[in-house]
């Protein structure tokens, strides 16, 4: 019984689902941020974690890292490296939200758009769920990967 559950939980198709979901999420989130960099900078600033001289640069670069990661994740390229980055970003976001929740800062998440509901413990829970999905991807994803398609055969080369 436990084994069956384990099997289901660890199934690569689930990982694939997570992969597409997280990938799409990041692409979607990044597109707005790229389009409205100034707003994203405001959002970052609202968290009061990043020093003021680095906020704009981060607002310019981070959405692009997100969109690249999202795209690569959807395509199944360098899945583990990408999921590492995504997990890292999510952890940073979560920690930032957590800090601001403790501060009782009146800010919205700014995860997708500038104007959203204020951050809450639900936001933390949502982000932690995403982190869990990302880790699942890291450990169990193996199907429909572009890397597998192009480089999988090279694994079979022996000396």
């Amino acid at each position: 019984m436990i084994n069956t559950i384990k099997k289901i939980v660890m199934h690569p198709w689930i990982a694939l689902g997570f992969r597409l979901y997280i990938g799409g999420l990041f692409v979607f989130a990044a597109m707005y941020k790229i389009n409205y960099a100034a707003e994203f900078a405001t959002t970052i600033a609202s968290y009061q974690i990043v020093p003021y001289w680095a906020v704009n640069a981060l607002a310019v670069f981070m959405p692009w890292v997100e969109i690249i990661c999202g795209g690569l994740l959807i395509l199944g390229i360098r899945v583990r490296s990408v999921s590492t980055i995504i997990a890292g970003l999510l952890v940073v976001f979560t920690v930032a939200i957590f800090i601001n929740l403790l501060r009782d800062a009146p800010i919205s998440c700014g995860c997708f758009h500038t104007v959203e509901d204020p951050i809450s413990w639900w936001t933390i829970l949502r982000d932690v769920t995403w982190i869990g999905m990302t880790m699942h991807i890291y450990y169990f994803d193996s199907v429909l990967q572009t890397d597998q398609l192009f480089l999988g055969k090279l694994k079979r080369i022996h000396s």
Binding site: Y36, A38, E39, A41, T42, H113, T114, V115
Partner: peptide, 22 residues
């Protein structure tokens, strides 16, 4: 400014400084 329409009939004015006026 730039403007965009959000779901639920919201209009967002995106200010140059990085603010949103809904």
């Amino acid at each position: 400014f730039k403007w965009s329409i959000r779901k639920g009939g919201e209009l967002w004015l995106h200010t140059k400084e990085g603010g949103v006026i809904p």
